[in-house]
């Protein structure tokens, strides 16, 4: 992982981490906070600094529930869950996928009301 990946994460997520005013509302709102080593609000500054190696190795990547509460409540439209999701994607692209969930299993787990975005990010998470 490199500086270049920080660019890629920004691009995939469409998030501008410079918009963050460090209010901490994402971390205040996060239900998986206790299980994360890098907290949602820190995630933003890691991307900003280009410290992607640490992010890629972080537990948080796979602990984020993709509940999108931080996206919903972020007052600056920074939306950390999008960053986390993009980081997952970057890691999977580079390191491959070791997960045991296969696409064939998905239809059985489907609920019509589940938003597609949630499915996609959950799929990334559980395929590890």
């Amino acid at each position: 992982m490199s500086k270049h990946d920080a660019e890629m994460i920004r691009e995939i997520s469409g998030v501008n981490p410079l918009k963050c005013m460090k209010c901490g509302k994402c971390s205040a709102t996060c239900p998986a906070y206790d299980e994360m080593d890098i907290k949602p609000h820190q995630f933003v500054s890691y991307v900003l600094r280009g410290d992607i190696e640490a992010l890629a190795d972080s537990k948080s990547l796979w602990k984020c529930l993709s509940c999108f509460a931080c996206i919903e409540r972020c007052p600056r439209n920074v939306e950390p869950a999008k960053l986390i999701d993009a980081a997952r994607q970057a890691v999977i692209r580079q390191r491959g996928n070791e997960a045991d969930l296969s696409p064939d299993e998905i239809p059985a787990l489907l609920d019509e009301k589940t938003p597609q975005q949630l499915l996609v990010s959950a799929f990334r998470r559980y395929r590890r």
């Binding site: 460090k22 209010c23 901490g24 509302k25 971390s27 205040a28 709102t29 996060c30 906070y33 206790d34 907290k39 609000h41």
Partner: peptide, 11 residues
Amino acid sequence: VQGSDLLDGKQ
């Protein structure tokens, strides 16, 4: 009330 304490690094 669930909030961040950013200086202490706590939720």
